[in-house]
């Protein structure tokens, strides 16, 4: 089963849940693969580290102008819907950050003067992580080059690569990018189930409702994890009850846990309250997996 861990709002604990659930579950004997798709700010490695086993550069395709064969028809600029190509009458200028890689300019060029070429956008790295207790798990990480703006193609490529490492009966956790737009959707689309991490603040609730709307459009099954849960603050519970959304687990707000997190520590083996919440979440996912097999 493939589970995406996402959130409308940043900083709610998406990465905390991803890395600790991966470690807790692996330590409990389950086959776990973790894939960090927050390619703009990949942070799972700060907590899990690991030995780098492989790295591959990710390219996308963009057109490159060949001035020698170009007949100056201007067709390329006319067909591009993204204004990624300008034609001055003498020269063709390509703006890579605006290009979506649709190939229209290249394929439709009468003189074949805009071949599609590789354009580096980032890297996918694979790490072998050794956990306390000795078990190992594999962590994959997409990392967008600084200065590159298009995260979504790299996310798609990271998921494709992750899929090649998946094993029958194993569980894959995708640490998704925050928000509700393209990058988050790209991760959610490729998952069997999405866990939305929310914190009990008005910002947290508002951004959760946006994420829920998005997942409903995608027709993805999902559940909520309440992080930094506070006694007596029930705004996330109230919303979930009203909307009929399952809460897969609650992680309490603990200053001790926040300090450990700050220093880059894992929590699953140090904070009993967190371990308890992770067990709850794992049990919820186990049940969903069984339901899926039963269908």
């Amino acid at each position: 089963m493939r589970v995406a861990i996402a959130s409308g709002k940043g900083g709610t604990g998406k990465t905390t849940v991803s890395v600790n659930l991966a470690a807790w579950w692996r330590a409990a004997g389950r086959e776990v693969l973790l894939s960090d798709l927050d390619v703009e700010e990949p942070n799972s490695g700060l907590f899990l580290g690991g030995e780098q086993m492989a790295a591959q550069v990710v390219y996308r395709k963009i057109p490159r102008w060949d001035p020698h064969t170009c007949e100056r028809s201007g067709n390329c600029a006319a067909v591009c819907m993204y204004n990624a190509i300008a034609f001055t009458g003498k020269e063709v200028i390509v703006f890579p950050e605006l290009c979506h890689g649709c190939y229209a300019c290249s394929d439709l060029c009468p003189s074949h003067s805009l071949p599609m070429v590789d354009d580096r956008i980032g890297e996918i790295r694979t790490y072998a992580v050794t956990l306390a207790g000795g078990r190992r798990l594999t962590r994959v990480e997409g990392r967008l080059d600084i200065g590159r703006e298009m995260a979504t193609p790299l996310i798609a490529e990271t998921i494709r690569y992750t899929a090649t490492l998946e094993r029958e009966g194993g569980i894959t956790l995708l640490d998704a990018p925050p928000g509700t737009s393209c990058p988050m959707m790209e991760a959610a689309k490729r998952a069997d189930l999405v866990l939305l991490v929310a914190e009990p603040t008005r910002f947290g609730l508002h951004d959760l409702t946006l994420a829920v709307e998005t997942l409903r459009v995608l027709e993805k099954p999902f559940a909520v994890i309440v992080n930094k849960d506070r006694q007596g603050v029930t705004l996330i519970d109230d919303y979930c009850r009203k909307e009929g959304i399952a809460i897969a687990g609650k992680i309490p707000h603990l200053t001790g846990a926040a300090r450990l997190y700050a220093g880059g520590s894992l929590l699953w083996d140090k904070v009993p309250e967190v371990a308890e919440a992770l067990a709850q979440i794992a049990a919820y996912l186990d049940e969903k997996e069984k339901e899926g097999e039963g269908r």
């Binding site: 703009e40 600084i146 703006e149 997190y261």
Partner: peptide
Amino acid sequence: PGIGCPVTASVTGTDFVVLVTEPTR
């Protein structure tokens, strides 16, 4: 948040950038 397209669009052409951070890894 992030470093991608919306961030670039937010920052370009401004006079001053305030970076909000926290002492966590």
